[in-house]
Structure formats: C-alpha cells, structure tokens
Design a binder for these strands. Sequence first.
DNA 1: CGTAATTTTGACGAAATTCAACAGTTGTGG
DNA 2: CCACAACTGTTGAATTTCGTCAAAATTACG
Lengths: 231, 231
Amino acid sequence: MLIARLPDVADHITYPDGLARTLGVPLRERSVPKQHDILSPGAEPEIAHLLLAGHTCRYRMLSDGRRQITAILVPGDICDLEALMEGRSSYAVSALTPCTLAEIPLSKAAATNTPDLAAALQRRLRRDEAIAREWIVSLGRRDGTERTAHLFCELRWRLAAVGLAAEDSFEMRITQADLADALGLTPVHVNRVLMSLRADRLIHLKSGQLTILDRPRLEQLAQFDPAYLQP
Amino acid sequence: MLIARLPDVADHITYPDGLARTLGVPLRERSVPKQHDILSPGAEPEIAHLLLAGHTCRYRMLSDGRRQITAILVPGDICDLEALMEGRSSYAVSALTPCTLAEIPLSKAAATNTPDLAAALQRRLRRDEAIAREWIVSLGRRDGTERTAHLFCELRWRLAAVGLAAEDSFEMRITQADLADALGLTPVHVNRVLMSLRADRLIHLKSGQLTILDRPRLEQLAQFDPAYLQP
DNA sequence: CGTAATTTTGACGAAATTCAACAGTTGTGG
DNA sequence: CCACAACTGTTGAATTTCGTCAAAATTACG
C-alpha cells in the first residue's frame, strides 16, 4: 500500500522524494501501530508527518468522551498541516490503522522559504477546507446511508488519485467504531447502514478490502460530485 | 451595525479603509437585500466582498432541494475568500439579512502581490477552516440544543471581536429556517430548541436581538472553547 | 390595514440511539 | 498449532431525538 514515485501524482510534496528534495534533507520513515497518537492538540510539535501508508485521522474529543473525526487522511496527505503551517495545532491526529509516516522536521520546513513550497502547502490547506465543507454538508443534510456512501466515494476518489484504488477496490481497515466517529453515527447504526449497502449490492466489504460494486449508483445515492477534490 | 475603524480589530484587512489602502484603490460599497445571491458556484466572479454589515452565508444545495449552510459570515469577514484566492468558488454565497458590502476587484487583488496581503488572506483561510472543523464536531456529536448553543457562543465571540456584541447581546436577524439550514435541523425543531433555551433562561431572542442571559452556563452546555477562533 | 412571511403548537412517523446479548475474527502465548 | 482473550461485527427490542404534516398565532412590511 506504500505510495512512492507514482507517475500520475501531480503535487511534488505528495511523495517523500519530492518533499525531501524541496526541504534539502532526507526524511526519516517511521511505522506506528493502530491507535497510536501522532499529534496531541496544544502541544508544540517538532515534526509534522507525511502519510505514506495506512489511514490516519484528525479528531476532537468532547469532555464527556464523545469523539468526532474531522478528517480522514490517506497516503500522500500531510497529517498535521496546521502544525506545519503555524507551529501549533488545534486538533489531535492518530492512526486508524497501522501506518508508515515520513517525518518532516518543522525547523527545516520553516527555514525553507521557497514560493514553491508555500504554494503547495496553501493548495493543501484549500483542499482540506473544501473536504471539510463537503463533510459539513454530509453531516447536516445527508442521512446515514447517503453519508456513508459519500465517504466511500470520496475515499475511492482520493485513493485513486494516488494510485491506490484500481478497479473501484481499495484497502480500508478502518473499524466500524471509527467510521461511526467520522460519520457522526453510532457503531451499531454504521453496522446497519453497511448491511443495507451490502444488501443493495452497492459495496462489498470484507477483511479490510472495500469494493464498490456499482459506482454510478453509489455516487448517485451520495450525490457525490468530485469537483471539490479537484486541484 | 456598520463596522469601521474599530480600535480593537487587529487585522488590517478587516475594515474597508485598511483593505483599500493595501490594494491602492478605494472600495465601492453596496447594499443588498435579504436573500440576495452574492456569488454563484462555478461562475467566474470579478469581485469579492468584504462584509460590512449584516450576515451572509456560504452554502451548498443538494439536487433535491436540501440546503446546508457551511459558514455564517459576520462583519469583517470576506464572503468569497475562495474566489479571492483562486479565482473560482465551489460554494455559493447569499445574504441572510440585508447587508452592506465592500467590493474587492479581483484583478486588483491578484495584482497586489505584497507578502502582507498574502499572509492576511492565509490567516483568514486557516481561521475559516478551524471554524469549519468545529462545525463538523457540532453536526456530528452535539445534539440540537448543544449545537444551537454552540453557534450562539461562536457568533457572540466573533461579533465581540469586531465590537458588535457588547454585554453579550447582539443583532441577529437570521430566520429560524436559515438557522435550520446552518444547524442541520428542521425549522420546526429549531423552534423547539429555541423555546427550550428560553425556558431555561439561557437566551432572550426577540425582534432580531439575541441576548445571552447566562453565558457561563450556555458555554458549558455547548462545550464552547474559543481556542479555535484565536488568531 | 391587509397580506405575506415567520414563528409557534400539536399529533404522528421515521431515523437513529441505547442497551443487551451473541457471533465471528484476530492476535497472542503456551 | 491450538486455546484463549480481546476486539470487532451483528442482531433484536425498547426508547429518544428529530422530522413531517398541518394549522393557528404572531410579526413584519408594503
């Protein structure tokens, strides 16, 4: 599932080689287990992370234990973009699955003042915001089934863009409990929604592999329009 | 309700004088009625707008008529930030109340290449994203009452920052139907939530004036933490 | 002053949650 | 390689939150 030197990846900071060249230092790689905390909010981190394999998330906890995932990151994404751009972070980041990460030293990033890098980071920020906006639409106005369908359409699109979703099928080892925290539902209800998507022959999900069986119908159900994901 | 030359406004593009000086042109002012479309998605706009008075929103429509408001803008905010930064916009903007706007010519803004302006715009973008993230938390994990309380806490904070919410009271002429589209609820349910907030003596809302009667209790109910609004 | 928009209320229905139990899968150490 | 424990997924029944429909009351506005 590792991403590297993909021909169809446009952005030069999506893969570690390009980012290392831009910063002028080789990036250390690191593997972290599922559930591992990559960034705690409030802390002053010294490294940011480019995700190479697996899925991470940004999230916020409420004081009574409720958790909301505000973003799911896929390979090629920068997990702690806020920390990279302003040195501090208002959200936490953790690993939804076992992950491989490339470490980006913040000191080095801050010292690298090329317009190239700044533009690339700003593009990432705009994209993250567009994704967040669409997530608001899902949480506010799509029911559980549409919302879940939309997430799967979005993940497929983003993974395909980095070469990780051939044939409408991709690795997704996110648990139903974590999906629930992303979708604003309970784990029980996520399970029922998945069962119904399966019964409708829209998806096949087993042992960490999600296959979209009927993409046109799933995208129609979700009212998925990839315009917001375009660079 | 007009915002201008406020001593406690830090950002030099929050008020029209500063922005006009930065761009080197005087900004035309314009009044638009309630419901007026300020920006349609997909269009290639030639002007962006700094909100001077009233409330506008960014929103997205689903094909079956459902609408989700993704951001509420207050005086000092740039309505069409995405258009200003990349020339096109993936969301629509319209006026929730009668508004006064300052017109920002995109050509002039694109030509003004000062690091100062770029930094200010990027700060706005980061802030908008932080607000969007918190909105995701509300829609995903707060119930109708908490969500409404959170929105009021946020509006009070943002309006206070531009001098428009003295004594925990501010003008808010947004209809319950529009609040519903922002909160991901139905108008009927918004009404019930407002009734219950009134019954609990947390707010007073009448003829377009919202007064927060017990701010500590309202903020606790909403689990409001203004950290995300900090510059 | 009259009409339209908005707010409020009630009765009923649907979507999602809660609680509880059980089955299946995965991972680990003996 | 098996046995066990822990986690993850699945299902049912009862309850809660929120939505829908419909109508009345109130307010805003030309």
